[in-house]
């Protein structure tokens, strides 16, 4: 066998021992997908960071441009045992009633017609018992109301000062009531709902 034949044989023998991948095309496709994923990973991460930044900025901008609605001054009316000075006339020594305390803390509006409604609910009136322990009150209790949100106003007078009353409002909403009774100036917030 001459050198050329030996060369052919040597090269053919070596080639025949080449490792074989029966799914070479599949291997290439998988490597391609992997490379794309690896190449795309930093971009995806950068985009994710960018998205977070944009979201945060947008949220801040949104907060600046459109401030959230302020919480209503009218907290839900809770039922609780009345203050000692507001229990006169109740047979229960520790009467539990829905009531609202004024800003000064010296007047409560005990809600008999809970919930207060505007217009008046068909099954109950807007009956409120006003009780005060403040000194200096005298004469009529003048109530000037302003509705939260649109500023609509109302005025009513309770002859003789605090006591049982029926107080109707022009419409539902949270009403801020300025109370004037003799030298006393106080305020209270009452919620009226649609019946």
């Amino acid at each position: 066998m001459n050198t050329d034949d030996l060369l052919t044989r040597a090269i053919a023998d070596l080639g025949a021992r080449a490792p074989h991948d029966p799914d070479l095309a599949g291997t290439i496709r998988r490597r391609s997908r992997w490379r794309i994923m690896v190449a795309a990973a930093p971009i995806a991460a950068a985009l994710a960071v960018l998205a977070v930044i944009v979201t945060v900025i947008a949220a801040r901008g949104s907060a600046t441009d459109h401030p959230a609605t302020a919480p209503s001054a009218c907290a839900p009316v809770s039922t609780a045992v009345l203050p000692t000075w507001a229990r006169d006339g109740f047979s229960d020594p520790e009467p539990s009633m829905p009531y609202v305390t004024s800003r000064s803390g010296h007047l409560v509006a005990i809600i008999f017609g809970d919930p207060l409604s505007s217009p008046e609910a068909p099954d109950h009136g807007n009956k409120i018992l006003w009780v005060s322990n403040a000194a200096g009150g005298s004469g009529d209790l003048v109530i000037t109301g302003t509705r939260e949100g649109d500023g609509e106003t109302m005025t009513t007078t309770l002859p003789g000062g605090p006591g049982p009353s029926l107080v109707d409002m022009p419409g539902p909403g949270c009403w801020h009531l300025e109370l004037a009774w003799g030298s006393i100036r106080d305020s209270i917030d009452l919620r009226y709902v649609s019946p």
């Binding site: 090269i11 070596l14 080639g15 025949a16 021992r17 080449a18 490792p19 074989h20 991948d21 070479l24 095309a25 290439i28 496709r29």
Partner: peptide
């Protein structure tokens, strides 16, 4: 591509190894 590699892949494996 798949058809090409199926047809010629083994030959190229031999070539690369040789």
């Amino acid at each position: 591509f798949t058809a090409y590699v199926r047809a010629r892949g083994r030959d190229w494996e031999r070539y690369a190894y040789a």
